[in-house]
């Protein structure tokens, strides 16, 4: 998402990047088990694993923290040309160990079993540059990700995020609220806040809403602000999609 104007004086500029990565969901750690499972997985698709970045996901780790040995994990992976770059989730002790092994720390991803993590506080949209981006999990055994469904209004200051699939909201998205999804966003109510679909770069993602009153709509980093949305389909049911790098608004009854 390139919303900040380039500053020519600077040596470089920090940009947010959306990179698809593989997460290794660790349930427990045993050096030999790990090694043999890894070898087994790689033998199924040797090309896929060559030189890929890997994230260790600790969200479902059930073993003892003392059994975790990131140096050994990194070593095992390195032998197979897999680069462990960081950990996701985990408790404070586990994250301390990870940091000790020079791994990057990623926030815990979607909590599939817990209550909806509705961030409160000013939105940290994909427009802020230096934020670590949540990681897309290209799970090796991929099932279709279920859509995240929200039936309460998304209020000003709240942020709702579907990191892996579609986001469906059966209520208004209020001014000052922000909804983000890796896939499509459906709002069965007025869309008054910001909607960012395809945040990991899916250019085929679309935004659907019952009434377009948005502050901003973005698809795969291409965005339009309220001012530029007024002329077409404002306050009516529309879909918004990306065509030739341009956001196109189409009334739903003519779709």
């Amino acid at each position: 998402m390139s919303e900040t104007a380039p500053d020519l004086k600077q040596c470089f500029q920090l940009k947010s990047a959306n990179v698809s990565m593989t997460a290794l969901e660790l349930y427990f750690y045993d050096e030999t088990d790990f090694e043999s499972t890894l070898r087994d997985k790689i033998s199924q698709a040797p090309g896929f694993f060559r030189d890929i970045p890997l994230i260790i996901s600790l969200e479902k780790y059930e073993g003892l923290t003392s059994e975790l040995d990131f140096f050994k994990i990194i070593g095992s992976c390195r032998r197979h040309n897999i680069h462990v770059i960081g950990v996701r989730g985990g408790d404070d002790d586990q994250r301390r160990l990870a940091r000790g092994a020079s791994l990057a720390l990623f926030p815990a991803g979607s909590q599939r079993n817990g209550p909806a993590p509705q961030a409160d506080g000013p939105g940290q949209p994909a427009t802020s540059t230096a934020e670590p981006e949540p990681v897309t999990v290209a799970e090796t055994v991929s099932a279709a990700t279920p859509a995240r469904i929200i039936s309460q209004p998304v209020r000003s200051g709240q942020q709702v995020y579907a990191p892996e699939g579609d986001l469906i909201i059966l209520a208004p998205v209020q001014a000052g609220a922000e909804v983000l999804a890796a896939g499509n966003i459906h709002v069965y109510g007025p869309l008054r806040g910001r909607a960012l679909a395809g945040i990991h770069g899916a250019e085929s993602a679309r935004v659907f809403c019952q009434s377009l009153e948005a502050e901003l709509v973005s698809i795969a980093g291409h965005y339009k602000i309220s001012e530029d949305l007024q002329d077409n389909g404002w306050k009516s049911a529309v879909q918004i999609q990306l065509r030739d790098d341009m956001l196109v608004v189409t009334p739903l009854d003519r779709a």
Partner: peptide
């Protein structure tokens, strides 16, 4: 109205 919306969000989360 905007501020009320904000406080409603806080009631739901905090």
């Amino acid at each position: 109205v905007r501020d009320s919306d904000r406080i409603l969000g806080i009631l739901q989360s905090k």
